[in-house]
């Protein structure tokens, strides 16, 4: 059971790394990084159950949060070249920034 999960996880990780290397577009790479974060979450969960410490799931959840925030940060950076800017802006500010 664990062996099957491990095998599936490792094959998926390798595929994601290949996609990250090959590209070709920017969004393939962002998506690959995001998927890799999800795979790390799964790996930590798997390690937790493998070593009979299911409380590792809490840590895995924290990783999921970090992964989400960093993906948003990367995408925001490519949309606005700036992280401190809000996603929703007041109309006059939007005009000024355009």
């Amino acid at each position: 059971m664990f062996f099957a999960i491990l095998l599936a996880l490792m094959v998926t990780m390798l595929l994601v790394i290949i996609r990250l290397f090959a590209g070709p577009t920017l969004y393939d790479r962002v998506l690959a990084t995001n998927s890799f974060g999800t795979l790390t979450v799964l790996l930590i969960g798997l390690l937790g159950f493998l070593t009979e410490r299911p409380e590792f799931l809490d840590i895995a959840m924290l990783y999921a949060l970090i992964n989400f925030v960093s993906t948003i940060a990367i995408l925001k950076f490519f949309r606005y070249r700036d992280i401190s800017r809000g996603l929703v802006q007041a109309p006059e500010e939007e005009q000024r920034n355009a």
């Binding site: 994601v16 790394i17 990250l20 290397f21 790479r29 990084t33 890799f36 960093s70």
Partner: peptide, 10 residues
């Protein structure tokens, strides 16, 4: 370099 940054994250 963008791919390199992403790979560094991985």
């Amino acid at each position: 370099l963008f791919a390199v940054v992403m790979l560094a994250g991985v």
